[in-house]
Amino acid sequence: MRGLLEIKNLNVSFAVDDNHVHILNNVSMDINENEVLAVIGETGCGKSVTGSAILHLLPDNAIVTGNIFFKGQDITKMNDHEFRQLRGQEISSVPQSPSTSLNPLMHVGNQVAECVLEKNSSEADKKKTALKVHEIFSRLGLPRGEDFYENYPCELSGGMCQRVLIAMGVITHPELLIVDEPTKAVDWALRKDVMDVFCELKNDMKCAMLFITHDIAAAKYVADRVAVMYCGEVVEIGPTDSVINQPRHPYTKGLIASMPSKGFNVMNGFMPSFQDLPKGCRFSDRCECSSDICVNEEPESVEISAGHFTKCSIYKNMNVSEIFSHAITS
């Protein structure tokens, strides 16, 4: 297994009226081939900005530093023309809202086919593409055949639209698929179906995924590894089981404890706005085990167990056995 995508110290700020609003602060994460990394976080924590940064889709006032390596190439250094060769071909995305991301005046089949067709492709090419679209539709559990190909988006249910969008994302056989909030717009009963589609994709198509979501249960269902983001920082990253069953960062603990099935224990306070972040650790003002060091120093990332990193000062001066015993007691 080798690293497919590696994000190193990614910083993104937005220039707004002569001010810089610093959204992403030293975000680092990596995705291996055929691996699903879920990015969990709440509204406004910068998880979608991370996705957009990878896809070069940030607005013009964004200032990006740091590196994003895709197969060894730094995509932050590419210009739009060079990146267009990658986007859609090797890196592809499934956008957030299925109801508004499709062109309402175009057959869904054509919309999917459009992703691969060149401007002046021949009739033979078009036929071939149509077959390919049919194949992908049937693989995603959509009815195969002319009828479905010629539906308009308004004739389909939310879950079906979502699957059409997935088809658009995967038809080029990308190596990396960036999925933004796939469960947000779908109903409870459909959520599992949608997630099953992603699981199948992972197993059949062998494509790596960056799975951006606020739905912890969905992340757990599909992801190999999980990154938890808070206020533009990755506070915890590691294998799914380890992060969700033994969360080490106080924020992750709080987030998981506030799930209804865990008895919805409440975390104090609100997420601060990016204009007035607390000094030191960004979670320090809401954290129960906050101490002086948290307020004064920005915490460093500590490896708790194999591949499981957390950015919290509690673990700073502990050795392995102490960390282990701390985990048992808390």
């Binding site: 506030s258 209804p260 409440v266 975390m267 609100f270």
Partner: peptide, 11 residues
């Protein structure tokens, strides 16, 4: 709402 906010509101 987000999970943590949902917990606050439910409580």
């Amino acid at each position: 709402l987000d999970v943590s906010v949902q917990a606050q509101i439910l409580k």
